[in-house]
Amino acid sequence: MIALIINGQPRSFPAPLNVAGLVEQLELQGKRIALERNGEIVPRSRFGALELHDGDALEIVVAVGGG
């Protein structure tokens, strides 16, 4: 298992896990999201290649209503 912090909440997932796998587990595949790992943007094109590690902090954002 690897422990991640996703949008400030601790979550555990079976290892190994890359970003694409995480997005699928969170049922966010195909959605308009942007993702940051440990403060660095992960481009969508790298989701499949980037392995996640124990303790990684992720921010996953969407567009919402705002002025």
């Binding site: 996703i6 949008n7 959605k31 999201i33 954002v61 919402v64 209503g65 705002g66």
Partner: peptide, 10 residues
């Protein structure tokens, strides 16, 4: 305009 916010996980 739109705002950018954390998605509701799960």
């Amino acid at each position: 305009t739109v705002a950018i916010r954390r998605t509701n996980i799960g």
